[in-house]
Structures are given as structure tokens and as C-alpha cells.
Design a protein around this nucleic acid. Structure first.
Lengths: 120, 120
DNA sequence: CAGAATCCCTGGTGATACTG
DNA sequence: CAGTATCACCAGGGATTCTG
């Protein structure tokens, strides 16, 4: 998928001084923040990620994981076993995203609270 | 564009316990984090936002601003003047996104540093 | 189990032209 | 200036099937 890759590359290169765009070029995918967030807890198997992100299809999860891997924020560990076993984990670089992901979660929790109890 | 709205609503409702998805339902748009980030500095006119986000077309900026407004994170101020003048500013709720946006910028700066000087 | 390959279609996005 | 309306394109993503 070099279309998306080109897009992300252009974005990274063509940023106009806004570092936020740089971050988005890495975690800007539809499901990337969610996947990364789940990986904060440690290694996860492909199926586990699918179960944790039921709104995304396995196909999409695969694609997004590949891009994250290409950007060096996650690592793919293949165990040469039968049945196949693959785990994903954050790289040290990926772990530096923790503040971003945690602040996103924190805000989501607050917002959900406000949205569900607007009159409260 | 209620297709996107439906999508976001579903996402907000159908989250599986991950607050990150809730946050994404609000700032998940392609240019939303960038627009919000620029608004951290204060009110901005439409044209100013366009200039600060040249990679996005005015059309897209309009659409994303509308969604942000619908989600209550920004406010649209119309001055009944000629020529027209419209300003956008963060609502109090929108301002609570500041930690998220700042951490995104911070990470982008670090990543850019690593990417441009990988051998350093 | 983990993922590749294929088909197909929706809708996100750009470009252009117009308006108050 | 700050949009809106319309057309057109094609890439993103879903569903299904197949494999090692």
C-alpha cells in the first residue's frame, strides 16, 4: 500500500511547521491510536487485538499494524510454531507515545462523562 | 454530511470500553487536531486557519470545523460586517483538549528530531 | 491462528464555479 | 472574506475466500 505511505510521507515532509502533523503521520490512522493504546499493557497476539478492537476488521488491523511497524513504533514477533503465533509489542520509540495515548484516554473518559450526564 | 456523523456517533456509542475511541470520535478527523492545535493560541479567522493548514483545502477545513462545532469543542463567531468576518475559538470543553494536543506536538518534535538525525 | 488475495462499493476529498 | 454547491475520481475499507 504505497498510496497511503506516499500520503503519510508527503504529510511528514510537507508539514508547515506544525509538529502535530508529524505525529498524525504516524498515529493518524483510523485505528492506530487504539491499537497502540492496547499495546501499552504489553505484548498482544493478533487475535487479542482483534477482540479488543471489534469495530475494525482483521484486514484493517493487519494493514494498520504494518504501517505502525514501518514507522518503527511497534515490533512484530513471529513464533515459528504450529499453529502460528504472532505477537506485537511497542518499540522503545512506540513507548514514547504513552503520554499521548494516556491523555487521549483521559480526555475520552471525561468527555463520555459529560456526554452521558450533560444536565448533571 | 450525516454519513460521517453517523459513523462518529456509532463509534462513540459502540466503543468497547476504550476511551481512546471516544476521543477519536471527536478529534479523529484528518485535520481536526491540527486545527484545534492552532486555535490553542486564541481566536483565528477562517483564512488564518487555511494559511496555517495549507495542505488542507478550504472545503475540508470548513467541514472539519463544522464537525468540531457540532461536538462542542469550538465556537463559531460571525461578525455581521462587510466584508464578512468569522472567527473560531475553542470552547471551555475544547480547551480541555490542550494536554492531548500539546503531547501530540511534543511527540512530533521528538520524532522529527529522530527521523532527521537517525545516525546522530 | 494469522494473514494474503480478491472483488466491490461507499464516501471522502479535490477542483471548480458561484454567492452574500 | 467566508463560505456553499456540484461534479468527478479513486483510494479506503468491508466481506469473503483461501492458505501455511
Amino acid at each position: 500500500m504505497d498510496a497511503a505511505e506516499t500520503k503519510r510521507a508527503r504529510r511528514r515532509a510537507g508539514r508547515t511547521g506544525c509538529a502535530v502533523e508529524t505525529t498524525l503521520s504516524v498515529i493518524g490512522g483510523t485505528w492506530k491510536p487504539v491499537l497502540l493504546f492496547h499495546l501499552l499493557d504489553g505484548k498482544l497476539r493478533f487475535n487479542a487485538l482483534c477482540r479488543l478492537t471489534p469495530a475494525a476488521t482483521p484486514r484493517m488491523i493487519t494493514l494498520q499494524l504494518r504501517e505502525l511497524e514501518a514507522d518503527g513504533v511497534i515490533r512484530r514477533i513471529v513464533y515459528p510454531e504450529v499453529p502460528p503465533k504472532v505477537e506485537y509489542e511497542l518499540t522503545p520509540l512506540g513507548r514514547t507515545l504513552e503520554p499521548v495515548l494516556l491523555s487521549m484516554r483521559a480526555w475520552g473518559e471525561t468527555f463520555a462523562g459529560r456526554a452521558e450526564a450533560p444536565a448533571g
